[in-house]
Simulated assay, not measured.
Amino acid sequence: MKIAPEITYRNVEKTVAIDSLIQEKIDKLERVCNYISSCHVAVEKTHDRPSSGSPYRVRIDITVPPGQEIVADSNPGETNQYVDVDTVIRDAFGMAQRQLRELARQQRDSDKSKDNNQADDTTGLVTKVFREQGYGFIKTLDGQDIYFHRNSVLHDDFDRIEVGTGVRFFAEEGEKGLQASTVQIVDKPGHRVNESNQTLIEPPLGWEE
């Protein structure tokens, strides 16, 4: 995740058990979608001593490149029994997980459609990889060097990336300028980044297949 998860409590005592449950659920979300940009979880108590339903509300706001936002809001109304905060948290994260799965499916379908139509995306060649620090740089067709982080690489493929790897990605504004998101490997090092007969970007100096 590009930005550390933010968890806020309003009229609810923060406990180790609640915090651990939320962290566990966030980890599961990242297994569903490993390129989440940010996640904000708000836990609040809206009223005291209800005869039924729940006094708790949990809202989860998630952003996913390129500019997608997911909101999951759980605030059980009148039910036959009291609903505790753990149950409301689980319910909210269940909503978020279903939405993330659907978004990931739509993005995969979109990628397949683009591949089938040989659509032109933003493509480039990896020119620098700092594996221990978890980031690198991509050179675009117009010669720009764009930063990318390991969390932006789809399918946990950061460790497969080498200098010369062809990638497709979205460019978006970050805190320090343009950066790549949803980075996807499209060809092995030193080869073409699509099926045409033209090499879009020359391999870096010193590159040997």
Rank of each mutant, 00 (worst) to 15 (best):
E202H: 02
K139C: 08
M95R: 04
V64E: 03
K14V: 09
S20D: 10
A17K: 08
G143N: 07
L178M: 09
I7Y: 07
V64K: 11
K25W: 00
R131T: 01
T87R: 05
K28F: 05
A92H: 02
I70T: 05
G190D: 12
C33A: 11
D121W: 05
K139W: 06
I36Y: 09
G134K: 13
F170K: 13
Y147S: 00
K112C: 00
I62E: 09
Q97W: 03
K114A: 08
T123W: 06
G124T: 03
Y147V: 02
D84H: 08
K114C: 00
V16K: 05
D27A: 14
K128I: 09
S38G: 15
V186W: 12
N116C: 01
V83T: 12
V12L: 10
F93M: 05
V16T: 14
D109N: 14
Q198F: 11
I36K: 14
Q179C: 12
L141Y: 08
H40K: 15
V186M: 04
V153W: 08
M1E: 11
I22D: 03
A171C: 13
N194G: 03
N194V: 00
T122G: 05
D120E: 15
G143P: 00
F130K: 14
Q106L: 08
G124A: 05
Y56S: 02
I26W: 05
R105C: 03
S152P: 00
E173I: 11
Y82E: 08
L21N: 01
E24C: 09
G164T: 04
Q133N: 12
K14E: 14
D19R: 00
I138G: 00
I161W: 04
I185A: 02
A42G: 13
Y135I: 04
P189H: 07
N151E: 07
A119S: 13
W207F: 15
D111L: 10
V16P: 10
E209S: 12
I7N: 08
S54M: 14
L29R: 01
V153G: 00
D157T: 08
D27G: 10
D91T: 14
R101G: 04
S51G: 12
D48E: 14
K112D: 01
V126F: 03
G136V: 04
E44I: 03
K188F: 15
R59Y: 11
R150F: 07
G77T: 07
D145L: 07
N194L: 03
V153I: 13
G143Y: 09
Y35K: 06
L103S: 03
I201N: 13
R150P: 00
D142P: 01
L141D: 06
I138W: 11
Y9H: 02
D145M: 09
V32C: 07
G164L: 07
D120M: 08
D61S: 10
E78Q: 11
E13G: 01
A104D: 06
